[in-house]
C-alpha cells in the first residue's frame, strides 16, 4: 500500500519534471545557430521564399509563443515533423527508439554479466591474479573509445573470421522484417515465429552489443569491486567475523550492503547510453534514436532533437523509478 502511494506520488512529479526538461531543451535547441529554412531551400533561395517558409514553420513568432505552440501540439501527441525525413517525429521515434533500446539493454546486460562477477571476485582476493586482471580491465575499458573497439571487433569477427553478418543495419536486406509489434526486431521475430529473421537480427546485434558491454563493464566492475571491498572491511563485517560468523554469511551480508551502489551505476549508465551509444550506432549503421537526434542537431532539425530528449527523459525517469523500487527491496531502512 505504501509502495503504491509512493509510486503514485512519483508519477505525479514526472509531469512537472518533463515540463522543465522540455523547456530547457527547447531553449537550448533554439539557441543553436542555423536556419532550417535556409537549409531546406538550398543556396539559391530568395529572401521572400525564406520568409514565407518561416511563416509556414511558425518561426516568425517570438520564442515564448513558439514554445506555447509546441506544448499545445505536444498535448495532442504531435511532436512535430522532421524536415529531413518529412515524417512525423513520433513515427520516426517509435521506429528508432526500440532499436536503440534493444541494443543498449543487451549491451548493458553483457556489461553487468562481465563487470559484477569480475568485480566481486577481485574484491574477495585483493592481491590475487583475478584482481590484477580486473584492475587492468577497468583501466583499459575506461581508456578505449567505443567506436574504435567496434571497428576492431568488426575487423576480427566480420572481416577476418566471417562469423557475423556485415555491420549494416539491424537485419539482412534480403530478409523481410517481421511485422512490428514492440519495435524490437528480435522480439518481433520471435513473436512472429520467424526463425530466419530472428537469427539474422540476433547476428546483427552481437557485435554492437558486445562493444557496449565490453566498454561499460569497466565502470560496473570498478564500482562493484570498490563497494564490495569497502563493505568487507566495514565495521559490521569485522564484527561478524569477531562473532564467529561463517565466511559465506559475512560475504552475503557485505554483498547486500554493496548492492545499492552497483544498482545506481547501472541505472546511470542505462540512462546515459540511450544517447551515449550513438557512435556505436553510427559504426554499425544501426539507425537508432541517438543517430536520429545527432542528424537533427547537425541540420537544425529541431523537432527530432526535442522528441529524442523527451523520449530519453521519460525513459530515464522510468529507470530511476524502477531503481528506487529496487532500493526499497534491498534496503529496509528506506521503507521502514
Amino acid at each position: 500500500m505504501r509502495i503504491i502511494l509512493y509510486i503514485g506520488r512519483r508519477l505525479l512529479f514526472i509531469v512537472p519534471q518533463l515540463l522543465g526538461i522540455v523547456l530547457v531543451s527547447f531553449l537550448l535547441v533554439k539557441s543553436i545557430p542555423g536556419d532550417p529554412a535556409v537549409l531546406m531551400l538550398g543556396p539559391t533561395a530568395t529572401p521572400d521564399a525564406i520568409a514565407s517558409l518561416h511563416r509556414k514553420l511558425g518561426l516568425d513568432h517570438s520564442l515564448p509563443v513558439q514554445f506555447w505552440i509546441y506544448l499545445k501540439n505536444l498535448a495532442h501527441g504531435d511532436l512535430g515533423t522532421s524536415w529531413q525525413t518529412t515524417r512525423p517525429v513520433l513515427e520516426d521515434l517509435i521506429q528508432r527508439f526500440p532499436a536503440t533500446l534493444e541494443l543498449v539493454s543487451l549491451g548493458l546486460l553483457l556489461a553487468v554479466l562481465i563487470g559484477v562477477p569480475l568485480g566481486l571476485a577481485s574484491a574477495f582476493n585483493e592481491r590475487g591474479w583475478l584482481a590484477g586482471i580486473a584492475n587492468f580491465y577497468g583501466l583499459g575499458a575506461g581508456s578505449l573509445p567505443d567506436f574504435w573497439l567496434a571497428l576492431v571487433l568488426i575487423f576480427i569477427f566480420y572481416t577476418t573470421l566471417q562469423w557475423v553478418p556485415a555491420p549494416l543495419g539491424r537485419i539482412d536486406l534480403t530478409i523481410v522484417p517481421p511485422p512490428p509489434v514492440t519495435g524490437v526486431l528480435t522480439v518481433d521475430a520471435l513473436l512472429a515465429g520467424d526463425w530466419q529473421a530472428f537469427r539474422s537480427a540476433a547476428g546483427h546485434l552481437v557485435l554492437p552489443a558486445l562493444t557496449l558491454g565490453l566498454i561499460n563493464a569497466g565502470p560496473i566492475l570498478k564500482m562493484t569491486q570498490s563497494s564490495m571491498e569497502k563493505m568487507l572491511q566495514s565495521d559490521f563485517s569485522r564484527y561478524e567475523v569477531l562473532c564467529g560468523m561463517p565466511r559465506r554469511l559475512v560475504v552475503r551480508h557485505a554483498l547486500r550492503n554493496a548492492l545499492p551502489s552497483v544498482v545506481t551505476i547501472i541505472s546511470v549508465l542505462y540512462g546515459f547510453l540511450i544517447g551515449g551509444a550513438v557512435l556505436v550506432e553510427i559504426v554499425f549503421s544501426w539507425g537508432g534514436a541517438g543517430q536520429y537526434a545527432v542528424q537533427g542537431v547537425l541540420n537544425s532539425d529541431f523537432y527530432p532533437v526535442l522528441g529524442f530528449v523527451l523520449f530519453s527523459a521519460i525513459f530515464s525517469l522510468f529507470v530511476y523509478l524502477v531503481v528506487d523500487l529496487i532500493y526499497f527491496a534491498i534496503d529496509p531502512r528506506i521503507s521502514h
Partner: peptide
C-alpha cells in the same frame, strides 16, 4: 570459538551491527 566460547562487546555498536 569466536562468539561462542570467547565473545567480545564492542564500542560504538550501532556501526558494528549490520544496517540492513
Amino acid at each position: 570459538i569466536r562468539g561462542r566460547d570467547i565473545s567480545m562487546v564492542v564500542p560504538n555498536p550501532r556501526g558494528e551491527l549490520n544496517p540492513l
